[in-house]
Computed example of a mutant assay.
Amino acid sequence: MIWQVIHIIDIVLWLLIACSTFYVVLFSLASLLKRHKAAQQQHSETSPYHFLVVYPAYNEDTVIRHSVATFLQQDYPKELFQLVVVSDHMSEETNNWLKEQPLTLLQPVFKKSSKGKALQYTIQQLGAKDQEWRIVILDADNVVEPDFLSRLNLLCQQGYRAIQCHRTAKNADNDIAALDGLSEEINNTLFRKAHNNIGLSSALIGSGMCFEYEWFAQHVDQLQTAVEDRELESLLLIENIYIHYAEDIYVMDEKVCSGDNFQRQRLRWMTGQVQSLISMLPHLPQAIIHGNVNYIDKTIQQALIPRSLLLVIIPFISLLILFISPIWSIKWWALLASLILSISIAIPSKLRNKSLWGKLISFPKLVWRMAANVFQINHKDTSFIHTSHSKTNNE
């Protein structure tokens, strides 16, 4: 009797964990396909778009000057974009420097700060704009190329209402930063490139995002949590608005360099994943009835076990089952092999080098920090968890 119970538990656990693993397998294979071009309505005008570019900056004195100075080198006509910095808890010295730049400086005072509140305040202050405007959201540490807006404009002219650019690491100061950048590139492959390849919407990532201004202004007040990108994604998919992944438009992003920052960042993401799943589930029946595949897919994403935890859970259970029944363990080892192969496929070729293996020594410590976060998740907590940036990376 006891062996039957153990066997049932073994099978149930395998099925639950296999769902998250096979999702990775499916989209790693999809990343190898040729991109499916989604049908978009061609813009009827030949005139370029206007862009409102927003840098929400909470306590970002160490990075905001470099980001702004770099962005002001855009080759796009100056009269066709407005740069906005939302300065929240930044020093007087930084604000005085910003006032001297050709930009709009907003200085709200929030009792409880968040990126969503900064975006809401921006729209409240700047008001409505016509259909020829797009809003671009960047993090305070983000750096872009001079042709960033020019290339975005071409995509907007093709009719895309929501665009996610290719956010990539601008630093690899240590093993933690390198692994953080690697993780983001794997996400880019699985949740953005692979999805677009088969005609599904890309996932958003929090910065390097471009939206139709009118749509954004109508929906920004619905942002309530510290993971506004997941909320925006849900709102877009409810309306069946396709999210295009601009793989060749890069946004350089600073990666975390310390274990503490890594843990805080992942806690925010894991909490947001649970909050997003809870908020999306009520709309799932209607999505199924109407065949909204993108919304169904996004809901499934929120229920997945993080890859890094899978890489610990599966080997642990495989070894455990091996001692109980070597035959039963075969399916676990096969699952582990499938996961490792899929992740390997998702790693961009330029990152597959010998130095990668040396950095993996930090992986167990990072996974331990992620596992510790599981016990700190509070789906009712909407507090903003700030990730600090290093001054040395931006001098």
Rank of each mutant, 00 (worst) to 15 (best):
L15D: 03
L310F: 03
I186P: 02
W14E: 05
N171P: 05
P77I: 12
E93K: 03
T225C: 03
A217H: 00
F375I: 08
L320Q: 02
C210E: 09
V5N: 04
L26M: 04
S308G: 05
R134S: 06
I135D: 01
Q158S: 07
A162K: 05
S234R: 15
C165F: 00
Q120K: 13
H195L: 14
S31C: 10
R167N: 13
K331Q: 15
I385W: 01
E100L: 11
Q107D: 07
L237H: 07
C210T: 15
Q218C: 03
Y295S: 06
A287R: 11
L119D: 03
L106V: 02
Y121L: 09
C257D: 03
D61R: 02
A246Y: 01
I377E: 10
N153D: 15
Q125A: 08
S202M: 11
S202G: 09
V24A: 09
L341S: 10
I64L: 12
A226E: 13
L119H: 01
K354T: 06
L236K: 00
W14K: 05
Y250G: 01
I288D: 09
N197C: 09
I345M: 02
C156D: 00
G259N: 08
S183F: 13
T62R: 04
I296C: 15
H219L: 02
I347K: 00
E212N: 15
S388W: 06
V274R: 09
T122R: 07
L284I: 13
K117P: 00
I289M: 10
A246S: 11
W332L: 00
E212V: 02
Q263D: 09
N394V: 12
I8V: 13
L335A: 05
Q40F: 08
S91H: 08
I9Y: 11
H244N: 13
K365V: 10
M252C: 04
P348M: 05
Q82W: 01
Q224H: 11
L29Q: 12
V227E: 07
V256Q: 06
L72G: 01
A57M: 01
A30C: 15
S349Y: 12
W97A: 06
S31H: 07
Q101N: 07
G206N: 12
D10C: 12
Q164P: 05
D175I: 01
L179G: 06
M209D: 11
V24P: 01
I137W: 08
L80K: 15
T168N: 06
Q73A: 14
Q131K: 12
A30T: 08
T271V: 11
D10Q: 14
I135K: 00
T387R: 11
F211H: 11
H195F: 13
H166A: 06
I340Y: 03
P48V: 05
H244Y: 15
P102H: 09
S67F: 02
Q222I: 04
Q263W: 03
S329E: 11
N174V: 13
